[in-house]
Design a protein around this nucleic acid. Structure first.
Lengths: 184, 184
DNA sequence: TCGCACATGTAACGTGTTACATGATTAG
DNA sequence: CTAATCATGTAACACGTTACATGTGCGA
């Protein structure tokens, strides 16, 4: 999913500024899937406006930069929906944790333990966020809830595995390195 | 994880050509996490050689391009392992399926059903691949098994949810659009 | 008063993909 | 005979990030 599509998806059911779109994509409702930055959002929004897929309302503010609120147009809605008909790619997963785990036998126990703890913490936070969002979006179409429930369920399974098998990975880590590290 | 790191990870316990590295990253043991192409692998390998992190043995073959087998050096091993000590990023997930599901209420039932079926099929294939690899790598360190088991477990939960809740999403799809499509 | 949230935008840079060029062998 | 597999490599391109530039108002 490119940044333009992300913008259309967000604007589909709410108007927003570039700043807000970025917030939603890094901290809010869409942050689980994407993570776009200003450098890509602002140009994308300008292009979408040129193509007539969104409109912009400027709200001038003294001293501050003008607040530019974008709204999706009918054309934008249609084109976005049409794009969903095109063949989709399979999920892409990039996990540095998995790479680390794969080589845990060469790493000190303390490091592996910390990584496991951090991951569990982050997973928990993400699930809390998803569950909060589910509440917040309770007025939105049920498909939105479905996605949150699905995600939450996968997150639970993931956490559950770490809870029951995390220690196992720890015990496979390189104890000697850990001792050497402790001695230093 | 950049392509150089991927190469070092693969070469860590086996020699390989650029061609083989690509196969491993798109179809083999590493394909669940990454997907690198020739255009990035060959330059990366050359750079790693320049930096003394890998060595290369040329095997000339009549008519064919020379087969260049790369091996990791002690320096390469050390540097790779050291890189695992650096702070890691959280998992990155990009799912076009989730985006589609989020807007399923605007899409015809037939499309949503097909996407669900395809996803379930792909998930199943991935799990089969992971389980096969677990067998194949039974002589490798136990950490390797741990990663496969963890992945397999998450995959199972994912499949399980789709099996029990997939129809629900289908029923939220836009029936009228489906009928319109069927009429065409 | 220090830093953060708000708010927009550009230029340089990094990283990777796609498409092309080249060519033998082998399985269907 | 045609497509796929093996095998390497480059150049153009796409896409996105990081860092910079600019500036106000508010809360600790």
């Amino acid at each position: 999913m490119n940044v333009s599509t992300l913008c259309l998806a967000i604007l589909f059911d709410q108007d927003a500024t570039g700043y807000e779109i970025r917030k939603l994509s890094t901290e809010g409702a869409y942050s689980y899937f994407v993570d776009a930055s200003f450098g890509s959002i602002y140009p994308a929004l300008n292009k979408l406006k040129q193509d007539g897929l969104v409109t912009m309302q400027i709200e001038h503010q003294e001293g501050k930069p003008a607040r530019k609120t974008y709204s999706i147009t009918q054309t934008g809605r249609r084109q976005f929906l049409e794009s969903l008909f095109e063949p989709i790619k399979h999920d892409v997963i990039k996990s540095e944790f998995m790479l680390m785990a794969r080589f845990a036998n060469y790493l000190p126990k303390a490091l592996v333990a910390k990584r496991l703890k951090d991951r569990q913490e982050h997973l928990k936070q993400t699930r809390t966020m998803i569950d909060d969002l589910r509440e917040e979006f309770s007025d939105k179409p049920e498909t939105v809830q479905w996605v949150f429930d699905y995600t939450s369920s996968c997150l639970n399974a993931n956490m559950s595995y770490l809870k029951t098998h995390g220690d196992q990975l720890c015990n496979l880590s390189d104890i000697e390195t850990a001792e050497r590290d402790a001695a230093e």
